[in-house]
Design a protein around this nucleic acid. Structure first.
Length: 809
DNA sequence: TTAGTTCCCTATTAG
DNA sequence: AGGGAACTAA
């Protein structure tokens, strides 16, 4: 208090009081972030430099720790957001994290690099694609494309599909890539075993074909990233300097290649923080290796370890059940989660006769929960082991008018019609994309069959050109004469679409609509539907793609708008003391998105890695349906776990080896610990699956839960798994008859009634089922429907009129 | 050679 | 139940 020692006397109390208040309000140096954290969480948040391992049990406030740690780094230590790399397991998790950080530190959180391994690495690879012999527009092939390529390769190599299954090769190749075994290494280790010899042949040829097509599979993204870092010291040191602080969430699900990349990136500064829980390792099927997290302390000398073992999420009942189940696993680090939460309700087990009853129970109970005011729809999740189980639940929910959203499942981008449109877009963007060519050369049917395609491919290979160019010059090749004019007009079609793209007159969704129509896909689908009476509405999916395109264009434009506003953001940031101006690595994507062409390229680049519907704007009050795998990291007030039967969960595929079974048990652990207050587990004696009714015993995991925590409903029969080996599924004809009779009554998806698309116009007041009343501010007739933008009290939403079921206000 | 039909076979989890 | 291969008709 030396400043006061020059003649003043008196109001010291007042001054020091002011001083305190003032500093609390204005210093804002990050310490306020520590309030409300427990000692271990605090320890983790405050750790800045050097390796850090956070062993975070389920519900222990992991996400909170991660977000607070990042915010603390920025506020307290003035770490530039541009030098933070945060790797999450899903894109959804990345978005959520960003949002939460944004609340803590403001807009500058946008500069944090966050996303999945795949999306972040793909982004980096696009910049340096040339170093690896690719162009920056390389395509990412999905599992479907992989299988197609492998089949082609197999015919080339005369490997009979009767004996070897393409799927097996795909699996094997993926496995090798995850372990970073190159073609050469694999060939050397293959020995004389004909299976491995053939796998090696396929591997080599497959890889070659990918390169020829300027494409990578999902595993390649990781492999090439590692190669890039290893082979180019300049690039390595650039990213080492850029990403001075690295965080990896769900570290227990990391594979060898991912581990190596992280290792390389952090090797110069060792500022690496990983978060995980060995009990929640559920991705070994795609190369995840729990040993990565178990050996972290060895890999990174002097690593600090923080254990978060206090559960803030669940009732003690739920937690106790989870603990008891997981305790049956032999290979794990001994630990136990504690909670101060109350006992809560017992876990309700519902054993029913058919899956219809199971679904009705689920739907009715959801209705009861919501009506009683216990929770809203969005606090409820229905989880299952297999996507196939969602069907019956969906119909029951639909019947009762319960709003819901299905996550994952048949991924949006995996649907045939969507992939077809994408193939058109891909070949428009890049004529060398032979995979896209082969996909749509005869979609819709235009009289070009396998034989012609084979001939075209042959010519293209011999001439060292691409298939589309062969079409352009089809008349030059005598062997193509029969189909020459058809091939040529296909080229003309694509050329016309390119011309339209270059004109740059349409908006992005308009252009997609143009491609959907001109390609003939829309008409083809309508014709098919009329002739075969298809169940799913594929046209609806195509329209959904248009909605996506609107969102995409909007988001992109928003980014470029933000850039103009940058100076203001910087000023804002100075207030909280985050210096971003001087960070040479601070950057945002600078792709040209002012033209239609630029937008298309940007769209194609991101689409493959984003499962549509991944992002959830949170405003929708609906029940969430998803697999247990995709529920990882999420929590819900009430959870319904359906299909708790032997053969389903644990999956029949995982019954043979102990390690597979332990992974299933970890899955069960994850499922249970998603619930905060109420957990319902349902099972049914007769389940119709894969077109057959099977009769399964209750899941063995149920027996591992303490009976006093359970409340059994439905069947009088005890919940008791088989004594020894699981009984193989039996067919039951009477049950089959009954369930199919009921399922007939169940199948009636009712499209919402509402205003016809043509009746809508700008300025009109309409009512939406969930958002209430709003004004149409934009209306665009598209593909027999109307794309409308509606302003609901300031909240703007894009939707398609037909599926939205709008009514006149 | 292509398109339409039938028949057969095979089924997790995901970026 | 659904997709793909094999078969058949044009």
């Amino acid at each position: 208090m030396g400043a006061f020692d020059n003649g003043f006397d008196g109001e010291f109390d007042l001054i020091s009081d002011l001083e305190n208040t003032y500093s609390e309000v204005n210093t804002d140096d990050g310490d306020e972030l520590l309030e409300g954290l427990n000692p271990e969480q605090k320890e983790a948040v405050m750790h800045l430099d050097g390796p850090l391992l956070i062993l975070a049990g389920a519900g222990s406030g992991k996400t909170r720790v991660i977000t607070y740690r990042i915010a603390y780094m920025m506020k307290k230590h003035h770490v530039s957001p541009g030098s933070i790399l945060a790797i999450t397991f899903t894109n959804k998790a990345a978005n959520e994290m960003k949002e939460r950080i944004n609340k803590l530190v403001g807009d500058s959180s946008r500069y944090i690099w966050s996303g999945t391994f795949h999306s972040i690495f793909a982004r980096i690879l696009r910049r340096h694609a040339e170093c690896l012999g690719f162009t920056s527009a390389f395509t990412i092939v999905d599992t479907d494309d992989q299988i197609k390529l492998i089949k082609q390769v197999m015919t080339e190599l005369d490997i009979p599909e009767k004996i070897y299954k393409p799927r097996n090769f795909q699996y094997e190749i993926s496995k090798q890539k995850n372990d970073m075994v190159s073609v050469e290494e694999f060939e050397r280790s293959a020995g004389k075993d004909s299976y491995y010899v053939n796998t090696a042949k396929v591997y080599r040829r497959y890889q070659q074909r990918l390169i020829e097509n300027n494409s990578m599979d999902f595993d390649d993204i990781l492999i090439y990233m590692v190669r890039l870092l290893k082979e180019d010291p300049e690039i390595l040191s650039f990213y080492q300097n850029k990403f001075r602080y690295i965080m990896v969430d769900e570290y227990q699900d990391t594979n060898r290649a991912q581990y190596t990349a992280v290792q390389l990136l952090s090797s110069s500064h060792k500022n690496i923080c990983v978060v995980g829980d060995d009990d929640q390792s559920i991705y070994s099927f795609r190369g995840a290796d729990v040993r990565m997290i178990l050996s972290f302390e060895k890999d990174f000398r002097g690593a600090k370890v923080v254990k978060l073992e206090r559960n803030y999420r669940s009732t003690s009942t739920i937690l106790e059940a989870a603990n008891k189940v997981i305790a049956n696993n032999r290979s794990r680090k001994e630990k136990k989660l504690r909670t101060e939460g109350g006992k809560g309700d017992p876990i309700i087990i519902m054993n029913s006769d058919t899956q219809m009853v199971e679904a009705m129970f689920t739907a009715d109970t959801i209705l009861k929960l919501v009506k009683s005011g216990k929770c809203g729809y969005s606090d409820i999740a229905v989880l299952y082991r297999m996507n196939a189980l969602s069907r019956s639940i969906e119909s029951a929910l639909r019947e009762r008018g319960i709003p819901f959203k299905v996550y994952g499942g048949m991924r949006f981008y995996d649907r045939k019609e969507i992939k077809d449109v994408f193939a058109y877009l891909r070949i428009i963007a890049d004529g060398k994309d032979n995979l896209a060519f082969e996909r749509i050369i005869n979609v819709p049917k235009r009289g070009i069959g396998d034989a012609t395609v084979d001939a075209v491919r042959e010519i293209a290979m011999n001439e060292g050109t691409d298939c589309l160019s062969v079409c352009q010059n089809a008349f030059d090749y005598p062997e193509l004469q029969r189909a020459a004019s058809r091939l040529n007009s296909f080229y003309a079609l694509i050329d016309m679409m390119r011309e339209e793209l270059r004109k740059n007159e349409k908006t992005f969704p308009e252009y997609i609509d143009f491609v959907e129509n001109r390609s003939g896909i829309v008409d083809d689908i309508i014709a098919q539907r009329e002739s075969k009476g298809e169940l799913i509405d594929r046209v609806e999916n195509l329209k959904e793609l248009l909605t996506e395109a609107i969102e995409f264009e909007k988001a992109r434009r928003a980014v470029s708008f933000d850039k103009e506003e940058l100076h203001r953001t910087e000023a804002d940031n100075d207030i909280v003391g985050i210096e971003i101006k001087n960070d040479p690595y601070l950057e945002e994507e600078t792709r040209n998105i002012d033209t239609l062409e630029g937008l298309l390229n940007a769209y194609l680049e991101t689409a493959a890695l984003y499962a549509s519907g991944d992002e959830d704007d949170g405003s929708d009050d609906n029940v969430k349906l998803m697999t247990i795998h995709s529920a990882k990291g999420l929590e819900f007030s009430s959870v319904f776990l359906v299909g708790a039967e032997e053969g389903i969960f644990p999956s029949y595929k995982c019954l043979t080896t102990e390690s597979d079974l332990e992974e299933e048990r970890r899955l069960m652990y994850v499922a249970i610990t998603r619930a905060k207050k109420n957990l319902f587990i349902t099972l049914t004696r007769n389940r119709m699956i894969f077109g057959q009714t099977q009769c399964n015993a209750p899941s063995r995991f149920l027996k591992e839960m303490p009976p006093e925590l359970l409340y059994l409903m439905g069947s009088k029969r005890e919940v008791k798994p088989p004594a020894v080996n699981p009984v193989s599924p039996r067919r039951s004809d009477s049950a089959k008859a009954i369930s199919s009779a009921i399922s007939g009554a169940f199948k009636k998806p009712k499209p919402p009634e509402g205003l016809a698309p043509s009746e809508l116009s700008v300025g009109m007041r309409v009512v939406h089922g969930r958002f209430g009343e709003g004004t149409i501010i934009k209306a665009e007739q598209v593909a027999g429907d109307c794309l409308v933008t509606i302003d609901f009290d300031g909240m703007k939403k894009n939707m398609l009129a037909k599926s939205a079921g709008l009514k006149k206000a």
